[in-house]
């Protein structure tokens, strides 16, 4: 198939950036979206032009490196998959495809379609862990965990940290990302011990980094390639409330 690509080009964080159109011809319908971009980039390199920069690595939907806002949607038109898992058969011959980076203040553009998502790491560093050190922990079967809780924790833990939830949200809220981590630990006995401190620290960090508020549009859930449920946000709100109420007593 032959396609026109309208791609956001931006030389660096300080550059203003603009759309540039490219034609790519003879794209195989069986190739993946990123492979289609590889073909474009090989062409650009041969012509001596600067190839389009984008993040990617595993190309199987698990590392969370790939991003891309395709025709106005994070990770493109198909539900429940990442950009790297999308194949060109989802597009029509002759189509024009618009490709942009994640647009969110806390994720500044580095170059072209590459953005800086280190804000997510900072939120985790603020409290997204259980404070155990290596060694000296109890036997893995010492504390039984109801299967239902373990399964729900796993549902939340499936988050790949790609940032689609933030990119999809008109407020650039990171609630789904934070809620997924808070929920995973809140559901497990090992995580309960620090549950109150954790939720407060992570939410404070999220606010400090400039992520917006959640106004319950649920665009995050709709665009999440791992289909993480907004039920996690409700759980986090409960955790947060409990932590706040308990806070004075703790002092």
């Amino acid at each position: 198939m032959d396609l026109t690509l309208k791609i956001w080009r931006q030389a660096s964080a300080n550059d203003k950036g603009r759309f540039v159109s490219y034609k790519v011809n003879n794209v195989s319908a069986d190739s993946s979206f990123l492979e289609m971009l590889d073909v474009l980039n090989e062409d650009l390199v041969i012509k001596g032009e600067d190839p389009v920069a984008f993040d990617h690595d595993c190309r199987e939907g698990i590392c969370g490196a790939c991003s891309l806002y395709i025709n106005g949607r994070p990770h493109g038109p198909d539900r429940g998959i990442t950009t790297c898992q999308m194949h060109m058969r989802h597009f029509k011959d002759g189509e024009t495809i618009t490709i942009e980076p994640w647009r969110a203040k806390p994720f500044p553009v580095i170059k072209d379609l590459m953005v800086d998502r280190s804000a997510f790491d900072k939120i985790i560093q603020a409290g997204g862990f259980i404070s155990v050190r290596t060694g000296g922990v109890p036997d893995a079967n010492a504390i039984p965990i109801p299967k239902r809780d373990a399964d729900l924790a796993m549902d939340a833990a499936a988050c790949i940290g790609c940032g689609a939830c933030v990119a999809a949200c008109k407020n650039a809220s990171a609630m789904l990302f934070v809620a997924a981590k808070v929920s995973q630990f809140a559901l497990l006995p090992q995580g309960r011990v620090e549950a109150k401190e954790r939720v407060q620290k992570m939410v404070a960090k999220m606010d400090e980094l400039g992520f917006g508020n959640c106004t319950n549009t649920y665009a995050c859930e709709a665009e999440c390639p791992k289909e993480i449920s907004v039920a996690n946000i409700a759980r986090m709100n409960r955790e947060f409330l409990v932590a706040k109420v308990a806070a004075p007593k703790d002092k």
């Binding site: 259980i130 155990v132 036997d139 893995a140 965990i145 299967k147 373990a150 924790a153 090992q190």
Partner: peptide, 17 residues
């Protein structure tokens, strides 16, 4: 043991183990 203590949600049986 370490991973479970960190909160890794390994698959479990109905009895919780």
């Amino acid at each position: 043991d370490q991973c479970v203590a960190q909160g890794v949600p390994f698959a479990r049986e109905y009895g919780g183990l």
